[in-house]
Amino acid sequence: MFLWNLVFVNPITNALIVLNNLVMGNFGVAIILFTLVMRLITMPLTMRQIRSSRALSALQPRVQELQKKYKDPKRRQEETMKLYREAGVNPLGCLLPMLVQFPIWISLYQALRITVGGTPESVVGLSQRLYPWSYIEQAVPLENNFLWMDLGEPDTTWILALIVFASTYVQQRLATPPTTDPRTQSTNQMMLWMMPLMFAFFTLQVPSGLGVYWAMSNIVGVIMYSFVYGPRQINWRTVILPPSAAPAGQQASRRAQPPPEEKERAEQPIEDALPTESKRKKRSRHGRSRGKRKNR
């Protein structure tokens, strides 16, 4: 725990207070700035996660084909993994960047709890976390009021909860890879509503400083998705409307359409759908085998 605090919680707590001083003591703006900085630092990981997810989506039709083709689960698994391997896609590629970000998220939650607690006990506790720099210490006690909220208390107006709900929903819609598998579709559909509802519920329970972080983080996430897919590739109408309200033909299709060339690639035979690098390797392997045959 000591190491955890030393490496994660204390630096984040102090960074938040430095930002608070830079923005003239507005802790809400400091949280927003901190979210932007953290998202910027973890952007390579997030982009990798989005691209992995996107590549997996592009391979979905081929995965479906394999699932239909092979009834034996072991063989099916082998062939699916082979497909991923040949396409240069790691199915865990989406999870790893997310896992790396977890310690940052958790320590940020703890740092926010420490800083926006506001009670005399939490201020005493804060004294044990701050670096002995007068620039930091002069910020205490922190100003907890931001817009209509007390950042140390849950927002009882429900406004923040609604913002968190809407932003989580939109990000979830963009992040969920389309699938033709009915079971996965059903799970995705459930998660699409569950996640925003849960986050909105948590927003009503925890200090609103955390809600501000969630909302801002989601908004930055949506911008990142938009950047990766290209804003014109996203059908915002179907992203915002619930799946049941979207035109029937688009329900199973992706909210964020892959670029046409990727779509074409996904509909082509496996070899043709592979990324250039994988194809080059494959060709060179074929070339070697052909050469061997030739030599024989």
Partner: peptide, 8 residues
């Protein structure tokens, strides 16, 4: 995280 982040 939410459990850790209860209001002081």
């Amino acid at each position: 995280a939410t459990a850790c982040a209860r209001i002081a």
